[in-house]
Design a protein around this nucleic acid. Structure first.
Lengths: 121, 121
DNA sequence: ATTTATATAGTAATGATTCCTATTACTTAT
DNA sequence: ATAAGTAATAGGAATCATTACTATATAAAT
């Protein structure tokens, strides 16, 4: 993966927000800095950044979201305001017990907790 | 929601499999029994069945899957064979601790454990 | 049986994502 | 510094899942 200013721009945009943006949101933000950037470039770079482990992909409700926070964490999604926030869930014990009970080697966990956030209950 | 033989057919197809099928898979299966059924009908009925709590929707990797098993459970997804299987995860304690730590009322949990199943490790 | 309202088939439209290709721009060797 | 080689880009077309639209059909209520 060699350097490109498009990728630097895209990565910078992701790192500067905590809104877990979609590809299209990132594309719109990128266009304000570089008018000619294309949506395909955004997708390709998101894929590559994810492949290199520099960002995380969250797939929920048939639309991908991207997250600069790559340390193991999960998400709370408020059904009122739609906001997605981070939460750390200890999973060592869980992974171990799944290995025992199902002989399944867990490599990646994606949890989404849907409900009502503190501002809307 | 009034009776229709299309819905009965669709529900029957879902109940008869444990493959966590996609809408298209269900549509193909339905067409073998009723040649004129339309994809829109499949989607509409899946939505309605989910709304009534008769089936569960699993959204993973930008494609929805449907599950007749509506009791709380989660999924293991094998990255080799793609098979998705069920697992029960006790979540009472987890919900309670999220309420405490984040003042967030969890209503629904979706967990996907990606890794290697017992047949491929 | 008639009326009323909901469901359907068929098709068009949308939205997210991927694919394609000619062009551009890093990188490396000269 | 220049040229060659390779990877990345822009722009647009194609694909796939899902939703929307509309005229017709069918279940339910009277």
């Amino acid at each position: 993966m060699r350097y490109s200013k498009q990728r630097e721009l895209i990565y910078g945009i992701i790192k500067a927000t905590s809104t877990h943006p979609t590809a299209n949101w990132i594309y719109q933000a990128a266009r304000e800095k570089m008018a000619t950037i294309s949506l395909g470039t955004v997708y390709r770079n998101l894929d590559q950044l994810a492949l290199e482990g520099m960002i995380k992909v969250i797939s929920e409700g048939n639309i991908a979201r991207y997250d600069w926070n790559t340390v193991s964490h999960q998400h709370l999604r408020c059904s009122v305001c739609g906001k997605m926030s981070d939460i750390e869930i200890p999973d060592r014990q869980l992974i171990k017990s799944i290995k025992h009970s199902h002989q399944f080697d867990v490599e990646k966990i994606e949890m989404i907790f849907m409900g009502i956030c503190s501002e809307h209950n």
